[in-house]
Design a protein around this nucleic acid. Structure first.
Length: 1056
RNA sequence: GGGCCUAUAGCUCAGUUGGUUAGAGCGCUGCCCUGAUAAGGCAGAGGUCACAGGUUCAAAUCCUGUUAGGCCCA
């Protein structure tokens, strides 16, 4: 690989590293050694842990948000693989759908379906296919660079014939169950272009227009007001009154009858004034629910009502509002989605007198042949002539128009194919019940709510690039329909070999067949299906199930998935279709655990968009900071299930705080192991024989193993990341820092402890940051471990050794670190620099008395003090005591008397109380005149010395420093000062940390005395072979001087 | 209009089963330390924990409502 120094032991890790360059080397290493495939081969016999890849739509460039889900799709499979599970990872690409078509239309400069038809569907679809293949390449590069291990060579593509045939097979299952049906669907529709519009298209075409606003009387013919009152109905589309079917009211709204003395009208109570104006008196009030099925006389009699069909009565609907109009909404199911839904629930007919070109059918009386909008005038005149018009105004509002030709759109019922998911709603809810959602609230919230409000799945699309709906209809008797489950089956029906036929439009459109003895020809319906159905079919279609050889076995082994993960927008998308398709086809959902991620925002908190210019592209981002940094961010920064901002700042911080700290700890290990010729495997004391600090580190390590494992088991990468980061911090900034001298000396226990910690840490971090852990595995673990696997990703997940976990030691080291913090604060406040040794410190803290001497020395060392005395040993009159209640403990025992007891404690004689607690373990206070006994856990006693000390105290713990500096202490301080100057000079002269030196020095007075007194110690500390006082006049090499200390010296590299 | 999420320091975010000085990192200022580190330590500035009620001896935490932002659906 690069210029690394090989030694018999470790490969020395240099402190400075170019992480992105290192990652490229690792990618080559994995490729050369086929590591991913080996990890699968190695776990072949293991219990499967099934993962499904939700196929990204291969449309447009991959973005940073694609990295997010892909990190999760990689972390858990890597984790499970290390645990010995067999985790198949088959890539997939979603190829069909409107987004692809729109992108191609844009490339070709097209302007709608007419252009596509003129261009030719075959050529158009070929362009779509080409576009998909182009974008798949970009996704593959991003996937590769980020280290997402997924088998792209065997990727499923939803446009592949075997995939399409498998989807056909599943549709046939649904068709045979009677759940795939044709019905009407109301959608925005342009009568001039003859096409439906998507929501996206709709949004860009609103124009302000003036429409008639009419209030029309519908005389009641049944119910309590039959013949005496009329419903008052408001609409801005008089032309839809021709096909009026019902009037909707809201069941929980109060309605009234009101009269002006001449007539009586029914309106919603809140709208009486607004709808009727002045001069009306309310006669009666009733709930909307009471009005159900009151019949009325329909406004126009221009259409023949279908024989046997009901209609023209009041229906109940929750979508009715009392914001405008009259609270009574005219229903025309062919021209409103809400109307259609209501009509379905009341089994009302769908009458559509308007032809697809926007003109009334010729056989409609009076307005036959008129354009729908033009008919308004005629109809309004007619209503006025018959006395049904209550009020007629001009109404200005935004109305959707075709963005291409500016024709007013109409909401129009088009025949459409549905899957009756409402009929399997209970099964879906039951499947959801069995599913584990992360985060949990999605299950009952966003997703559960969606299931509860389930509506039938509108499956068909009047488009070109999609899985063709495999239904052939008899052109003479449309009730005869055949759903085809494969090309072979179609070939049999058509009487010719169709294998090798592209199962897309227009090729399948050309295939027709007849049935013996049945008049008419079967022709395919023109629609393709929703691309979401394709992706929902992936559990079986990715194997070509059931047609492809071996697909049945493969499918059954890998169904359902243990784990899937996508962003939150997939609740209504893939999470739903995956559950819905498989619940209908296979009788159960296809996943057990689902991790649902929040969205990724730009650094400015907004969505990334070209328009805003705040896009971060994934590959450049990874080339700048490294894929590991981006992966760590995705897995562990903030809450992955909430939306998060990504930017350079946060990635730099991850690199500096976590990845480089980890790296440099390894670098430190190899530096001193190399310097001392040490490698693991030799004589090393057993953990129990090692110093307490080592045992503490190993205790933390084994805790970490179980905690991180537990976090991964419940898919909590955030927690795993926090645990790992704080371990790295402890290892580097406490364990290594505190143990430096032992490393300089090459002490096996220290080196072994650090090695063991790093080796295990590397395994634990491998799923999240596979690159840097691989590098260190190769340099720090593999060369010194005779049976080490070739890659960290082929290694087994570590097991915690509970015997090494020592909770008491954990507490004690935590105390040590708190005391060090207090001591440092005291020093900072006293302005005595850390290099100046102090004679003694007083410590007052629960737990100090039992703290092992070894750990007390840690405190002494950090604070540079020579000795300790317990605060409590100082005579009472030198120490102030204060006592405070521990509310947490008191609250449990005293409940609502807690404040009283706390107040009593605060009033009590603190010194006596402390004394009693110290000697007898309990103390007594008077609460409301009666004595109450408290334990040490229930009070916080703080002891502070009165005078002459530098004191810091917190939460009942005190450190006090004796600031008296004797001449002896001063000389020791000067010696330390001299050491620092020499070390600085060593560094400035570019010496290696292991170089021996010859030192010549000169000084006067106290400095000279200090250096002579501590000469041997100084020499040892700075690795001086020779250490002599000399006249430096005319000395060779540069003379280092420090005027403050009055010291001058030269140093030269000593040979051996 | 409905469902869900979010609101804590200038910024990014922690904050366990409610417990009395609300934390960390980044950034800023000053000082200190340095035989690994792009590091580290101490101190300072910076908070009415969105708002209003309620429950409780005790609320950032539980409940209700409001406001603002986001996502999805109508």
């Amino acid at each position: 690989m690069s210029d690394r120094r090989q030694t018999p032991g470790y490969t020395v890790v240099l402190p400075h590293v170019d992480l992105p360059a290192m990652e490229r080397e690792i990618l080559a290493f994995w490729q050369d050694n086929d590591t991913f495939a080996r990890s699968l081969a190695q776990t072949e016999g293991g219990e499967p842990w099934t993962f499904y890849e939700g196929p990204p739509t291969a449309n447009g460039q991959p973005g940073v948000h694609h990295v997010e889900a892909r990190v999760f799709k990689d972390v858990f499979p890597r984790f499970r693989t290390m645990q010995g599970r067999h985790v198949l990872r088959k890539a997939g690409w979603d190829c069909h759908g409107l987004p692809v078509e729109i992108a191609v239309e844009k490339e070709l400069g097209f302007n709608g379906k007419g252009d596509i038809e003129a261009f030719g569907v075959a050529q158009f679809n070929a362009r779509c296919r080409e576009s998909v293949e182009r974008h798949v390449g970009e996704f593959e590069r991003m996937t590769e660079r980020m280290g997402y291990w997924v088998d792209m060579s065997a990727a499923y593509r939803t446009m592949d014939p075997s995939y399409v045939e498998s989807v056909w097979w599943s549709l046939k299952q649904i068709f045979d169950k009677g759940l795939l049906v044709q019905d009407y669907r109301v959608a925005p529709y342009c009568p001039r272009c003859g096409t439906g519009l998507s929501d996206h298209e709709l949004a860009q075409g609103y124009e302000t227009v003036v429409d008639p606003s009419v209030y029309v009387r519908f005389p009641l013919t049944s119910g309590p007001y039959a013949g005496t009152a009329s419903l008052l109905v408001w609409t801005t589309t008089p032309w839809t009154l021709v096909s009026n079917t019902a009037v909707a009211v809201r069941p929980d709204v109060t309605y009234v009858t009101a009269t002006d003395g001449v007539e009586t009208l029914v309106v919603a109570d809140p709208l009486v004034g607004q709808a009727l104006g002045e001069g009306w008196t309310v006669v009666d009030r009733f709930a909307g629910a009471e009005m159900e099925r009151w019949r009325y006389q329909r406004p126009f009699d221009l259409l023949d009502w279908p024989a046997g069909a009901d209609g023209h009565f009041v229906v109940l609907a929750d979508y009715v509002t009392t914001e405008d109009g009259t609270g009574l909404v005219h229903q025309s199911p062919a021209f409103g989605a809400d109307d259609l839904a209501v009509a379905r629930s009341y089994q009302l007919p769908v009458l559509n007198p308007v032809k697809p070109d926007g003109h009334f059918a010729d056989d409609v009386r009076e307005v036959g042949g008129l354009f729908f909008k033009t008919a308004d005038k005629t109809l309004v005149r007619d209503l006025e002539a018959r006395g049904l018009m209550f009020r007629h105004l001009a109404y200005e509002h935004a109305y959707p128009h075709c963005w291409r030709c500016h024709t007013a759109l109409l909401y129009y019922a088009l025949p459409s194919w549905y899957i009756r998911t409402t009929q399997v709603k209970d099964a879906l809810l039951a499947e959801n019940e069995k599913t584990t959602w992360v985060p949990e609230n999605i299950k009952w919230g966003r997703y559960g709510d969606w299931l509860h409000n389930n509506i039938d799945w509108a499956l068909s699309r009047s488009r070109y690039w999609g899985t063709p709906l495999p239904i052939w209809v008899n052109d003479q008797d449309p009730s005869q329909r055949v759903c085809v489950g494969s090309l072979a089956e179609l070939g049999e029906l058509a009487g010719r070999d169709l294998s090798g036929t592209d199962p897309h439009r227009p090729f399948v459109d050309d295939i027709t067949f007849t049935k013996h003895g049945v008049p008419g020809t079967f022709r395919r319906v023109p629609e393709v299906i929703d691309g979401w159905y394709d992706s929902g079919s992936m559990p079986f279609a990715q194997w070509g199930y059931p047609h492809a050889e071996g697909s049945v076995e493969t499918f059954e082994r890998a169904f359902p998935a243990a784990f899937i993960s996508e962003a939150i927008d997939q609740t209504r998308g893939w999470f739903y279709t995956l559950m819905a398709v498989n619940t209908i086809v296979h009788g159960r959902s296809s996943y057990e655990n689902v991790v649902c991620l929040g969205h990724i925002l730009a650094e400015d908190g907004r969505k990334m968009s070209k328009h805003l210019g705040n896009i971060l592209e994934p590959i450049p981002l990874m080339e700048e900071h490294g894929a590991d940094a981006l992966r760590w961010f995705m897995a562990a920064s903030g809450s992955p299930w909430q939306m998060r901002r990504v930017g350079h700042g946060v990635l730099q911080e991850i690199v500096r705080k976590t990845l480089l700290t980890y790296w440099n700890t390894a670098s430190f290990l190899t530096l001193y192991a190399d310097a001392n010729g040490w490698a693991p495997g030799g004589e090393v004391p057993a953990p129990a024989q090692r110093p307490l600090l080592d045992r503490w580190m190993l205790s933390e390590l084994n805790r970490l193993v179980s905690d991180v494992t537990a976090a991964f088991e419940v898919f909590d990468t955030q927690r795993a990341g926090r645990l790992l980061a704080s371990f790295v911090e402890d290892l580097s900034n406490w364990y290594v820092r505190r143990s430096r001298r032992r490393f300089w000396a090459g002490e096996p226990a220290a080196l072994a402890t650090l090695h063991e910690s790093l080796a295990t840490l590397t395994l634990l971090m491998a799923p999240i940051v596979p690159f840097v852990t691989e590098r260190l595995w190769q340099d720090v673990v593999r060369p010194v471990t005779h049976d080490a696997p070739e890659s960290v990703h082929l290694a087994a997940w570590p097991q915690a050794d509970g015997a090494l976990v020592d909770p008491q030691l954990r507490e004690q080291v935590a105390l040590v670190r708190r005391l060090v913090e207090l001591g440092r604060a005291a020093r900072a406040a006293s302005k005595v620099r850390g290099r100046q040794p102090l004679g003694r410190a007083l410590v007052g803290a629960p737990g100090w008395a039992t703290l092992p001497e070894e750990l007390r020395r840690e405190v002494a060392d950090e604070l540079n003090v020579l000795a300790f005395e317990p605060l409590s040993s100082a005579a009472g009159e030198l120490v102030d005591h204060s006592v405070k209640g521990n509310f947490r403990a008191l609250g449990k025992r005293f409940g609502k008397d807690t404040p009283t007891v706390a107040a009593a404690l605060a009033r009590a004689d603190a010194a006596a109380l402390a004394q009693s607690l110290r000697t007898t373990g309990t103390a007594s206070v008077l609460v409301d005149g009666s004595p109450v006994t408290v334990s040490p856990e229930e009070v916080v006693v703080t002891e502070t010395p009165r005078e002459g000390w530098a004191v810091e105290t917190a939460a009942g713990e005190t450190v006090a420093l004796d600031l008296t500096i004797t001449p002896q202490l001063r000389r020791a301080g000067l010696a330390r000062e001299a050491v620092r100057l020499v070390q600085e000079a060593r560094k400035a002269s570019g010496f290696e940390v292991t170089d021996r030196i010859a030192l010549r020095w000169s000084a006067d007075g106290e400095a000279a005395a200090a250096i002579e007194e501590h000469g041997a110690a100084i020499a040892e500390e700075v690795l001086a072979r020779s250490f002599e006082k000399a006249d430096l006049l005319g000395a060779e090499g540069p003379v280092h001087r420090d005027d403050g200390l009055g010291l001058a010296f030269t140093l030269t590299r000593s040979q051996q």
